[in-house]
Design a protein around this nucleic acid. Structure first.
Lengths: 140, 140
DNA sequence: GTGTTTGCAAAGTGTTTGCAATTTA
DNA sequence: TAAATTGCAAACACTTTGCAAACAC
């Protein structure tokens, strides 16, 4: 019992400290998402998982929730292709490897990639974030 | 006269060597696109420019043409946000700087950014391309 | 109770497709 | 004239929105 209660409490605290009311749907989605630390999901995928898990939630709410979580820094949005939004449960500094054949997206830890030279940002601006996507394909 | 004929011929040759029939629409779009070397356009933008220039072309044809040009390596697609495709007239190795406040996208030359360490691609795959997007915002 | 959140369906993007009419070589 | 290309409208995938009902505090 403890083993199920503890992660639930952890998720609840994370929602609370993000200023998000721990509603039934948000808690359930947060549990699905935040329990694992290296997930890349689309809204559609997460909705499917929630339904499979017996959670009654609409796709619109999944979208809204994903954006609220992103704004609260519980998630990060990754843009790899136009027309589909991926959300990453790993919010620490890191980059991505995309298999163009399979569409599979995986993390590259910040320490596995080194930028030794950077342009200086135009005056009046500062660097918000640097996204690196290493696109690979079958070498056959 | 010469000054207008020459770029037209250049564009015509580029279409021909890409194996694309130089139709009226393709020639016109190619002229709009390929004359300048650092453009980032959306289909909608280019369609607007074509109409303004008095070229009769449909949005569907603009989309088709952009994709044909991309396949023929006359353009390169840049993914900066989900839900909108940008096409870059600069097909050489380079990266991008995105102003998140204005949406403005500009080039970073390959020599202004140095990757000193890279992960090795998973076995059976090879690196196709590395996309780096430096996202900046107002520092106020 | 009061303000927030939800679900639904409807509307909104941006993009692609099917097919008859047109154009090109 | 044969094959490729075009335009249109309709279909598409993904995402957002408006609003009444349900819920959390």
């Amino acid at each position: 019992m403890m083993t199920t209660v503890r992660p639930y409490a952890r998720v609840l605290d994370r929602l609370k400290s993000a200023g998000l009311r721990p509603t039934r749907q948000r808690l359930a989605l947060a549990k699905l998402l935040l329990e694992d630390s290296d997930r890349h999901v689309t809204a559609e995928q997460l909705h499917g998982e929630a339904i499979d898990a017996g959670i009654k939630v609409s796709l619109a709410t999944v979208y809204n929730t994903l954006h609220q979580f992103t704004k609260a820094k519980l998630l990060r949005e990754v843009v790899v292709e136009s027309g589909r939004a991926y959300f990453d449960t790993n919010t620490s500094d890191h980059h991505h490897l995309l298999n163009e054949d399979t569409g599979e997206l995986s993390d590259i830890s910040d320490s596995d990639i080194q930028l030794s030279q950077l342009p200086s940002p135009p005056s009046g601006t500062k660097i918000d974030r640097i996204d690196i996507i290493v696109r690979v394909k079958s070498d056959s």
